[in-house]
Design a protein around this nucleic acid. Structure first.
Lengths: 299, 299
DNA sequence: ATGTTTGCATGAAAAAAATTTGTGCAATAT
DNA sequence: ATATTGCACAAATTTTTTTCATGCAAACAT
């Protein structure tokens, strides 16, 4: 059911997403002719052309770009609005837009997969959307309402959001099989030795201790897989979450460096805007996350 | 033109505002019968009853109350959305919702009336809405988007809003004709004498100096007129803006107390959310306010 | 009590709006 | 040159919305 539907805007967004009228037919379930009329009506109402189309290809106009962005936003709000009104009865429905950082699957203490399963097992008709991004970006998207909840190691917490501590993640420094340090005895490896080599940085985190912070890192990655790949080249040292290394049974390909001295923990939080808790779907998901957390800490 | 119109919700809100179907006919320009069908459709879509109606009177249900509040909010957003898209061509249109504190008309350095006149003289088709409330309330409404701009002596400024200094307002302490202090010579009046009498407080401001702050004030008002009225009873002393007293030619009815020692100034700011400046109407209004301010400070 | 008025519901008819069908046109690909 | 693709448009059709006419029940007046 759609309460705050709007054919014109939905058509516009669908057409842009499909890159033209022809494909949007199937997405919208109406004929190309109807689409043509709708876009014409939209443009008449707005008083300007939103896109160039025809055999020459499909392209948004300058104003069309702005209108598209705004239209997508308002349609998202409209979906959330619908969900809020519908959830006044007891059904759980609407969007649930979750943001996470990457490599969260193997975080045992969180057990993201199980949480999702628990949530979905209620057999509700929630439309799930999972976005992977950096903590900074997740914060931004929470504020704009693009996300309902996010799970990440939030370092700088903003006032508009509420954070709930979830679990710890342990990071250690690794090197690959081809790296000079791979076969060196433990007692020969100290901070001085390590700091002689290139360290690959995580773009959004400041995990590595200050003394190892290279002034001008030669490699920066925004993804855990990419970090592991770079380390495996043997050209870089780099920090990785322990659970990530173990789960990939890469133990043979990577070596921990100075495990006693070099390990950092980052704290994972669940973040959300208070207003989102009015949404039943959000409330239930948060409940599931916390239940999972407590199940782990109780042991 | 309405782009993101929604007949069902608009009908619902209109019906609530009109207190029933019969009056809403004229507000909406459709027959009572059509309204009946629309409300029925809305309730079918939502799955619950939003209001009780009939000869017994009109009353929102519990869920209806919530739905009404949400519907009004989303319709407001929808109007703003329309305006944003329409203003991509060069017309200035849509809502302009301005918040001010009371007794702002006589604030000469601001000249609110002239600013409004300047704005309206552009003969645009902006729907103006002016809300009078306390600074705290104005701040709240700016954040929720209920207001686009506000002019008030904002004391605690929040991060989400941007403030621009406008002008100063001078306050002094006054007493009414029937007050014991009205005829006392100047040199007999000092802080000690004054603090022996009841002082009427402005509910939202902390203007009166700490030493005169009664621990348990006997009178609190949230309105300048009310403050003046109370002072005129002769039972209270109270602070008033100088321009306010002068403009009402109340000079004879009120007396300044210790004008040299007891005067406070509050600073007026223009506040807005950065996002609102995307609206042409808002941008132009802000421009007008600042132009008026500069015209005064230049002299 | 009884009749009247008020406020809303409902079915049928009418009006309005949106969609499909069928076709044409222009730019591109073959 | 011919076929194809992507869209526009007019007429016909379907769907939705509104009005009209009427009914009903609760409140009100007498």
């Amino acid at each position: 059911m759609k309460l705050l539907r709007n054919a014109l805007l939905e058509t516009f967004v669908a057409v842009v997403d499909c890159g033209g009228f022809t494909d949007a037919q199937f997405a919208l379930g109406i004929t190309q002719s109807a689409i043509s009329v709708r876009i014409r009506d939209l443009e008449t109402a707005l008083g300007y052309r939103v896109c160039e189309r025809g055999r020459g290809g499909f392209r948004l106009t300058e104003r069309g770009e702005i209108a598209y962005a705004k239209a997508r936003d308002i349609l998202r709000s409209a979906r959330d609005f619908d969900a809020e009104l519908l959830e006044l009865r007891d059904v759980t429905t609407g969007d649930l837009r979750i943001g996470v950082v990457d490599a969260i699957n193997t975080l045992a203490d969180l057990n993201f997969g199980t949480v999702l399963k628990t949530f979905l097992d209620r057999s509700n008709d929630v439309r799930l959307e999972i976005i992977v991004a950096s903590p900074t970006e997740l914060t931004q998207r929470l504020i704009t309402g693009e996300l309902h909840v996010a799970i990440a190691p939030f370092r700088n917490q903003v006032a508009d959001l509420t954070y709930t501590k979830l679990c710890q993640e342990e990071h250690r420094l690794y090197c690959g099989r081809d790296h000079p340090l791979f076969d060196l005895p433990h007692d020969k490896i100290d901070l001085d030795v390590i700091s002689g080599y290139q360290i690959c940085q995580r773009s959004y985190s400041m995990l590595v201790s200050p003394e190892l912070q290279p002034t001008d890192p030669k490699a920066i990655v925004a993804n855990m897989e990419a970090m592991a790949t770079l380390i495996e080249t043997g050209h870089y040292l780099g920090p990785l979450p322990v659970h990530f290394v173990e789960s990939r049974s890469q133990s043979g390909k990577l070596r921990e460096l100075a495990p006693n001295r070099l390990h950092w923990t980052s704290t994972f939080y669940l973040a959300t805007r208070a207003i989102n808790l009015h949404r039943r779907a959000v409330e239930l998901f948060v409940e599931d996350v916390l239940k999972s957390r407590d199940a782990h800490t109780d042991r």
